[in-house]
Amino acid sequence: MNTGGIILGDMPTHMESSPMGNEQGSAGNVIAAICSFFVPGLGQLVQGRVMSAILWFVAACIAGAVIWILTLTLFPFGWFVVSVFACINAALSRRPAEGAEGVVSVR
């Protein structure tokens, strides 16, 4: 049977590495971005980046406290601003290639 010149074995395999993918815009990054929007650092934690998650959460707490002290309002503007940046950071995150962690090229 003729498949129009397309051999199914020649299909690109770049999406077969993991079910959620690790490219920008993959399902894993979208879920992480949504998590980081509500709780800054949660998306980074979902991605396995613990130190980044802690830093984003602490930054959100500090920003929320500073804005609250300056304005004496309950509107969490500082928390919201940091959560937007944490969301963007989680969405644009790319994992290093497998086996590339700690590898240093010496020439």
Rank of each mutant, 00 (worst) to 15 (best):
E23H: 06
F77R: 07
M1H: 01
I54L: 09
V106T: 07
C87G: 10
S26K: 01
I6W: 04
G102R: 11
A97F: 08
T3P: 11
F37R: 03
A65Y: 15
R95W: 05
A65C: 14
V82A: 12
V106A: 10
G43R: 03
M20V: 06
V84M: 15
L70G: 09
I69D: 01
Q44A: 12
V103Q: 01
I6L: 13
T73P: 11
L55A: 09
H14A: 04
A53V: 15
P76Y: 07
G102C: 10
C61G: 13
A91M: 10
V103S: 03
P19T: 09
A53N: 09
S18D: 10
E98K: 00
G4D: 05
R49V: 12
M20H: 07
G64C: 07
T73I: 05
V84A: 11
L70Q: 07
W79Q: 02
I6G: 00
F75W: 06
V58A: 14
S36H: 08
F85G: 00
R107F: 15
L74R: 05
I67L: 00
N29T: 14
C87E: 10
A65D: 14
Q47W: 11
C87W: 12
G4I: 00
I88Q: 02
R49T: 14
V84Y: 00
V84E: 03
L8I: 03
V46A: 05
H14G: 03
H14E: 08
S105L: 15
V104T: 13
L42I: 13
E16L: 05
C87K: 10
